[in-house]
């Protein structure tokens, strides 16, 4: 059975009758389980192009479904539901609704690059996983994942100062994701970390969390990066048709929006 047909044998798509005779043949019971017929009409025909427009997804069209990615996958070994080959297939045929079933685990790719190492077609499955995670967020299917929040907290500091300080990143990440720093394992780790450290070193570490380390003369780079980030955001929104969606939503909102438009 092709991988995309696994949806056909989900319990909700199977029917078994206790008592059924069709054309004189008794088809009752488990041995005569029926797969319900289905017609798929909700393909997103632009799906592959949308993923290819996001960084990392450029080569998704090259996949020939050998399965090397899933076979080598670190996360798949822990959670068999995590299946890059399957998702790449769904992207290629545009079965958005099927992908959405896994929307809460796709971000869990750990970027170990085993898939990219194994892939004979240079699909860069690791990049496709990142593109797919971005796509889910941009399209509003999921809230930003903890991983995305971490990337943002980290990158903000790099863009701002040129470098990061790990303590700060950690504090801000815990704050933004609403987690407490007061966790037994974390406290134990800090205790072990501080056990042998001299006082001078502790002061230095403490200061680093207050005064951010920075690359001097960074302002030029910061401006260049900010401009680039802005430009890329715009490009991605356009590729996914997000601005058009918002415009359409505004039009649907009716006379209030139109009235405002007329006044301005």
């Amino acid at each position: 059975m092709p991988i995309h047909e696994q949806s056909l044998i989900r319990p909700e798509n199977l029917t078994t009758h206790d008592q059924l005779v069709v054309d004189g043949v008794d088809v009752s019971g488990h041995w005569s389980t029926f797969i319900q017929s289905r017609v798929v009409t909700d393909y997103n025909e632009a799906m592959q192009d949308e993923i290819a427009a996001l960084p990392g997804g450029e080569n998704v069209h090259r996949c020939w479904q050998c399965g090397s990615c899933t076979n080598s996958c670190t996360v798949n070994a822990i959670n068999p539901e995590f299946n890059p080959r399957h998702w790449i297939y769904l992207v290629r045929i545009g079965m958005e609704s099927e992908i959405l079933r896994d929307k809460d685990i796709i971000w869990q790719c750990v970027s170990c690059n085993k898939c990219t190492y194994a892939c004979p077609r240079d699909v860069v499955p690791e990049g496709v996983m990142k593109a797919l995670s971005h796509w889910l967020e941009l399209k509003g299917h999921v809230k930003p994942s903890p991983s995305m929040v971490f990337d943002e907290v980290f990158s903000e500091q790099v863009f701002q100062h040129g470098k990061i300080e790990e303590g700060r990143v950690m504090q801000r990440f815990f704050k933004r994701t609403g987690q407490s720093l007061n966790q037994p394992w974390l406290i134990e780790m800090m205790r072990r970390m501080l056990r042998h450290l001299p006082v001078g070193m502790l002061t230095k570490l403490g200061l680093a969390t207050l005064v951010a380390p920075r690359t001097s003369g960074w302002s030029g780079a910061r401006a260049a990066i900010e401009e680039y980030v802005h430009e890329q955001e715009h490009k991605r929104r356009r590729a996914l048709g997000l601005d058009a969606l918002i415009e359409a939503a505004k039009r649907d909102a009716g006379p209030v929006t139109a009235g405002e438009g007329a006044r301005s």
Partner: peptide, 25 residues
């Protein structure tokens, strides 16, 4: 001299070309 972050996994996830720029600097 006056080095900056290489971009790490995190900036690469936001935009791979920005990571390329940071490392190239």
């Amino acid at each position: 001299k006056n080095w900056n972050c290489c971009g790490a996994m995190e900036v690469k996830n936001i935009d791979p070309k920005l990571q390329t720029y940071l490392s190239s600097r």
